[in-house]
Design a protein around this nucleic acid. Sequence first.
DNA 1: GCAGATAACGGGATTTTTCCCGTAGCGACC
DNA 2: GGTCGCTACGGGAAAAATCCCGTTATCTGC
Lengths: 214, 214
Amino acid sequence: MMKVMVGIADDQQLFLKSLVTLVNTFGQFTVVLDAQNGNDLLDKLERTKQEPSIILLDVNMPGMDGIHAARQISQRYPAIKLVALSMRDDDTTIINMFKAGCCAYLVKDIHPDELEKALGEVYSKGFYNADAVNINFRRLLAHGDKSNETRFTDREMMFLKLACTDMTYKQIASEMNLAERTIDGYRESLFEKLNVQSRVGMAMEAIRRKLVEI
Amino acid sequence: MMKVMVGIADDQQLFLKSLVTLVNTFGQFTVVLDAQNGNDLLDKLERTKQEPSIILLDVNMPGMDGIHAARQISQRYPAIKLVALSMRDDDTTIINMFKAGCCAYLVKDIHPDELEKALGEVYSKGFYNADAVNINFRRLLAHGDKSNETRFTDREMMFLKLACTDMTYKQIASEMNLAERTIDGYRESLFEKLNVQSRVGMAMEAIRRKLVEI
DNA sequence: GCAGATAACGGGATTTTTCCCGTAGCGACC
DNA sequence: GGTCGCTACGGGAAAAATCCCGTTATCTGC
């Protein structure tokens, strides 16, 4: 029986090679390509004679990350099915990966059996939805994909920067030459955009999304 | 030939199982035990009849993390050699793991060959120093371990971690099974140690000093 | 056996943050 | 000309965070 050819990209070499070994134990699949980042992956795809049917793609990689890699690959190699692999399961990342052309999203602490099942379904059906992310996914599609680009105005960014310090809102207001209530308005809109419910949560999310430098 | 028995602990199940598969391909070694966190590891160590000679221990795990697990194991099972496995290579983490009883520190993007070599050396010589971390290690020992200048207790670290989220102190208190006032005590001492005057400032400083991951 | 560090807890006051209800000017775009 | 997004502002109430005043128990080291 012809085995299904799989490619894997992940920046952590140990995980990458381990995963290669694991996937090769799945009877139906064989790993024909592995890469440590997006550029590496595209290079190797161009050169190889054994084009994989499925590529397991880490979302967080230095250099070209998973989202950009997914976009490139789904354009240049539309036949290849992309499976996103990530540590986190936040809504925006999931949506972005699907929009970039992925047909499945897996978190990194799934059981190997589920990975095998997912690979099987992706190959036969063309998609796989893990129960864990399925709910969020549908909910997001339901309210029309607000996540595509959450935009922040200059004033919001300025407020966000100051909110990530020891200052009180009163101090921030005077720093920005605004009334306290105006600050409160920015706070409210940012809470909604960042999907948080406290200033600490807002600050953490700002750091996480690299909107504010530490 | 008798194979060397190895245990592995990592919170990401996929990585854990992949690594098990990988290490089992190393001729000299065989994995007899795997766990998803510190508590799980200690449980399984108590029950097993095949005590591993070496344990590969992830540093960042929920529940009981690598540092605490290392302390417990090196006390209860001094014969077991501990190898720390981490994504990061910052000085304090390395020092802490060595102080907790580890005899090697590996970053997660090493090549499988180096892992095999490291396991071999740890088994035969009792230690292994990767070139990459060797320099930092020596430098740190040279200037006398400044990392103890501000000490944080275990409970303080736990509180700090939770304080860097959207949770209220009330929620944190119930998460840690403590009264609100006790939480307030931790807050006060951390404000002083970190030299801040608000929770946001505390969270930012915690991130800056890499006491808490984002 | 006592000092010192750590951990846990209580009451009360004040400030800050959060969450509601709103209004209004201005520029852009169809 | 109307609607939409951004900016800016007001008052009031509830919840959370901050800052005081304390206490008790345990463990570790000298």
